[in-house]
């Protein structure tokens, strides 16, 4: 079983601040961590490998310092780390990121299963996983809360829904994005940390993956961030009580007062 886990280095959410002048994320002095959802994707991949054998590769697109999360992933059980890094990738939106990861994945060979976190805690878009699957033309399921059964040619999973879950069976190769309920990630082991320290991280540039320069980075990104700002604090909240009729009457009265 060849497994690929897509991970992202993100600022530690406990520490996020906006630069008041530029209105961009202040990254100076802010710790970087592996996106928390991606830790669960990695744990699931490692657990599947422990069950069926095979190899877990982790990939990240990012600046050179993103190598740290790849080493962390190796310490937590991954077999190899691949850093997709090039100045030309800078400023990529989810469209260009999915394009880049798809080319990188293809450059690495064929995978049976690709796992991603549901979303990254910095952008919160949840688009890269599905985007990557579409680029690779493989089936995908988002918000997976449990792997029910996995074999060499198919996987059956539970997709979390608001009011329960769907059971989805899909042929491999496929892509899953996972939620935190799926597992409890392990603590990096001593042997894993020693392996991570010595591991060689493979680097792939835009040229290495054969990407079209017009489709990557800022140039290849149809969405552009115009402005980032801290939202103003919300106004007062009101709770209406009583039966539905009474609550609607209270709401209408309240809205009229504000017109």
């Amino acid at each position: 079983m060849k497994l690929l886990v897509c991970i992202k280095q993100v600022p530690d959410a406990k520490d996020v601040r906006l630069d008041p002048v530029t209105n961009t994320l202040a990254r100076e002095g802010v710790d970087s961590i592996m996106n928390p959802y991606d830790r669960h994707a990695l744990e699931e991949a490692v657990a599947i490998r422990e069950q069926l054998g095979g190899m877990v590769s982790v990939i990240t697109m990012g600046p050179p310092q993103a190598e740290a999360v790849l080493r962390e992933a190796i310490a937590c059980g991954a077999d190899e780390g691949v850093l997709v890094s090039d100045r030309a990738f800078a400023g990529a939106d989810t469209w260009a990121t999915a394009y880049t990861l798809a080319f990188a994945a293809q450059a690495l060979g064929a995978f049976d299963l690709i796992l991603c976190g549901k979303q990254a805690i910095d952008g919160d878009t949840a688009q890269v996983g599905p985007g990557l699957a579409c680029r690779l033309q493989i089936p995908y399921v988002t918000c997976v809360q449990k792997t029910r059964h996995v074999s060499r040619d198919a996987i059956e999973v539970e997709r979390m829904m608001d009011d329960g879950y769907d059971v989805v069976r899909l042929p491999l190769p496929a892509l899953l994005t996972v939620v935190k309920d799926i597992n409890e990630p392990r603590v990096a082991s001593l042997k894993g940390k020693m392996k991570a320290k010595k591991a060689t991280i493979r680097q792939l540039s835009a040229a290495d993956i054969g990407a079209d320069p017009l489709c990557i980075g800022l140039t290849g990104s149809p969405t552009q961030v115009v402005r980032v700002f801290s939202p103003e604090a919300r106004g007062d909240r009101m709770m209406f009580s009583g039966n539905v009729q009474q609550q609607v009457e209270q709401l209408v009265a309240c809205l009229k007062n504000h017109l």
Partner: peptide
């Protein structure tokens, strides 16, 4: 079991 997975029993 988590402690075992983290290799601390091997110290």
């Amino acid at each position: 079991q988590d402690i075992a997975k983290a290799d601390l029993f091997s110290i």
